[in-house]
Design a protein around this nucleic acid. Structure first.
Length: 506
RNA sequence: GGCCCUAUCGUCUAACGGUUAGGACACCAGAUUUUCAAUCUGGUAAUCAGGGUUCGAUUCCCUGUAGGGUCACCA
C-alpha cells in the first residue's frame, strides 16, 4: 500500500564530533533538537562527525553515547546495533563510514563545475590571507586555480601535485536564510571565498559532509550552536549546487562562564562526567540546561523531560547567550534530591561512601564498615542518609555529612563541645546528664526526643544540654540534631561517644 | 581587521507599543531552631548610551558602546 503523501515529517539531528569530553554545552545542543523532534512526533538522528581521524577517538564517542543515554536523550535511527556496546537499538551514523557517499557528490560537483581542483600551496594561501587582512578585507581564497584550463588540471593531477577540492563560490551575490530563532540573516558571498570542500575524493571536510548528510538524511530542521552561523551560507550554497533544497535552520546561543566567555575549565566544570561524579542528578541537569535559553512563558520552572517535550517551542528560545550559574543548578539539584525516595537516594549515595573508603560491599545490600569491620545493612545506611535528606545539594556531599557514623573514634577539638560560656565542668555535667537519661530509657526515637527535650527545657538555655551532646555524637560544628543522631547510632555507640567526649574534657 | 550575532535586577528570565517593569536563584532581614540546612514571611536590586518614529517606547528604526562568534587542507 502506498502511503498518502503528507506534509514532511520533522527530522532533526545532533551532530557532535568525538574529540573530547562530553561538554555540558554540547548536551544543550543535543537537547533542543531532541525536544523539537519529540514534541512534533518527528525523528531525532545522531550523527557522529568523525571525519577528522586524527582528533576523533572511540573513547570520546563512548562517553558521548553514555552521556546521552544517562540524560535520557535517545535517538531513533542509524545502523542496527550488532555489538553489545549500545543500550539503544541503533548505533549512530558515523561520517567515517560514509566516504563513498561523499565521493559520489564530490565527483558530481567536479563534473558540473561547482567544484574545482586547487594546487596552491598552504603558504601561498596563507600569504594571500595576510595581505587581504592588512588592507581591511575579508581574508578569503581568491586563487588562480579557479579558472585553470582542463588540460592543466589533468596534467597536474597526473603529476601528482598536492591539491585540494574547492567550491566555486558564486561571486558578488548574497545568501540569506531565515533563522528560526534570529530571523533573517544575510551574508555576501564575497566574505567566504572559495572554501575547501575536500582534501581529496575520499577525504571530504566538514562543511561538505555536513551539507550532504543533512540532505541525505532528509533533515528538516538543523538546530545547532551559534558558532555555526558563518558555516550556514556555505552549506546552503553546497546544497543548492547539488540540486537540493536546504532545511530550516535555528541557531542556539552559547553558554558562557561567569567570566562571560565561552564556558571553559577556567571558571567551572565543563564535562558532563564531572557533574555526574559530583552527584548532580540527570533530571536536575536537564531541567537547568533547558532553562538556560528557554522558558515556557509561564512561572513554572520545574520540568521533567516529558513535560519539556510537551511544552517545548522553538519560538520561546532566547537569542542571547546565557551564563552558566552553578548556584541555581545546586538549588534545582537539591530540590530533586528532596523529591527522591529515601531508598533511591540511599542507593545512589552508597557508591560515594565506598569511594571514600568508609564502607565496602560484601553482598547485595550488605556492607562492612572499613574501620570497625562491623557489618551494616542498606537499611541502616538509609537511616543515616535520612538525617541529611533535606540538606543535601549534591550526592558527593553525603560523605562529609555522615562519615562520623562509620568511625570508631571521632577526631575533633575539645573546644567544639563548648556551648556559649560553659565551663569544662559544666560540659561534663551536661554530658553525664544526657548519658544518664539515655542509659535509663527504653531506647527509641520517641523516648529520646521526649526525655532529652524535657530535660533541656528545664534549663535557661536548651543549648547547654543539646549542643555538647550533639558535638560529642557528631564531632562536627554543623550536623543533624542530637536525638536523631543518637537514634541512628544506637544506644551503645551513643554512650561510648559521650564517654569519649568526657574523657577528652578531663 | 572583515563578516555575523547579542544587549531587562549580580545570575536565569517575563512583559499585543500603555504594567507600581513580574517570577526564580543568589543576597539581606524576620519566624522556627542547640548548630547547619530545609521550610514560611518580608526586603534590596534591572530596561547599555544617544538620537529618532509615536499621544505614549523595555518593546520599532538608526548610530554609538560593550560582549560574543567566525574567518583552517578542524568540526
Amino acid at each position: 500500500m502506498i502511503a498518502k503523501k503528507e506534509e514532511k515529517r520533522i527530522r532533526t539531528r545532533f551532530a557532535p564530533s568525538p574529540t573530547g569530553h562530553l561538554h555540558i554545552g554540547t548536551i544543550r545542543t543535543a537537547l533542543f533538537p531532541f525536544l523539537f523532534a519529540r514534541k512534533n512526533k518527528g525523528t531525532f538522528i545522531l550523527r557522529i562527525e568523525d571525519t577528522d581521524l586524527e582528533r576523533s577517538k572511540k573513547e570520546w564517542e563512548d562517553e558521548l553515547l553514555m552521556g546521552l543515554n544517562w540524560m535520557g536523550i535517545n535517538w531513533d535511527e542509524g545502523p542496527v546495533v550488532n555489538s553489545s556496546n549500545y543500550i539503544g537499538e541503533h548505533s549512530p551514523y558515523r561520517q567515517s563510514e560514509r566516504t563513498k557517499i561523499y565521493r559520489k557528490y564530490l565527483e558530481q560537483m567536479l563534473a558540473d563545475g561547482h567544484a574545482y581542483y586547487c594546487f596552491c600551496s598552504k603558504e601561498e594561501v596563507e600569504a594571500q590571507k595576510q595581505y587581504l587582512m592588512s588592507i581591511g578585507e575579508s581574508p578569503v581564497y581568491r586563487g588562480a586555480c579557479r579558472d585553470l584550463p582542463k588540460e592543466t588540471v589533468e596534467k597536474y593531477l597526473k603529476e601528482g601535485r598536492p591539491s585540494v577540492i574547492r567550491f566555486r563560490t558564486p561571486t558578488d551575490t548574497k545568501v540569506s536564510f531565515n533563522d528560526l530563532i534570529r530571523g533573517e540573516i544575510e551574508v555576501s558571498t564575497e566574505t567566504m571565498g572559495d572554501f575547501v570542500l575536500a582534501k581529496d575524493l575520499d577525504t571530504a571536510l566538514f562543511n561538505f559532509t555536513c551539507a550532504v548528510d543533512d540532505v541525505e538524511m532528509e533533515i528538516t530542521h538543523v538546530i545547532r550552536g551559534e558558532d555555526h552561523i558563518p558555516n550556514t551560507p556555505k552549506q546552503i550554497l553546497i546544497i543548492r549546487a547539488l540540486g537540493f533544497e536546504e532545511p530550516k535552520y535555528a541557531h542556539l546561543s552559547l553558554i558562557l562562564g561567569t567570566d562571560k566567555k565561552k564556558l571553559s575549565k577556567r571558571t567551572s566544570k565543563t564535562s558532563l562526567i564531572d557533574y555526574k561524579d559530583d552527584g548532580y542528578l540527570p533530571e536536575a541537569i536537564l531541567n537547568f540546561i533547558a532553562f538556560l535559553g528557554w522558558n515556557p512563558g509561564t512561572e513554572k520552572e520545574i520540568y521533567s523531560l516529558d513535560e519539556l517535550i510537551a511544552d517545548f517551542s522553538i519560538e520561546k528560545i532566547q537569542k542571547s547567550a546565557a551564563i552558566f550559574n552553578v548556584e541555581k543548578l545546586d538549588w534545582i539539584n537539591g530540590f530533586y534530591i528532596r523529591k527522591k525516595s529515601l531508598f533511591d537516594l540511599t542507593k545512589e549515595c552508597v557508591p560515594y561512601l565506598i569511594r571514600a573508603n568508609l564502607i565496602r560491599e560484601i553482598a547485595v545490600e550488605k556492607y562492612s564498615i572499613i574501620e570497625t569491620g562491623e557489618e551494616i545493612h542498606l537499611e541502616e545506611i538509609e537511616k543515616m542518609v535520612a538525617l541529611y535528606h533535606e540538606r543535601l545539594k549534591k550526592l558527593s556531599e553525603i560523605v562529609e555529612l555522615i562519615d562520623f557514623c562509620f568511625l570508631k573514634e571521632l577526631d575533633y577539638p575539645t573546644e567544639l563541645l563548648k556551648w556559649k560560656e560553659m565551663s569544662n565542668q559544666e560540659i561534663i555535667d551536661s554530658l553525664n546528664k544526657s548519658k544518664d537519661i539515655i542509659s535509663n530509657i527504653e531506647f527509641n526515637k520517641q523516648n529520646l526526643e521526649k526525655e532529652l527535650m524535657e530535660e533541656a527545657n528545664k534549663l535557661t538555655n536548651r543549648g547547654n544540654l543539646l549542643w555538647p551532646l550533639r558535638a560529642a555524637l557528631s564531632g562536627k560544628k554543623n550536623s543533624a540534631g542530637p536525638m536523631e543522631i543518637a537514634f541512628v547510632l544506637g544506644k551503645e555507640k551513643t554512650i561510648i561517644r559521650i564517654e569519649q567526649a568526657i574523657k577528652k574534657l578531663k
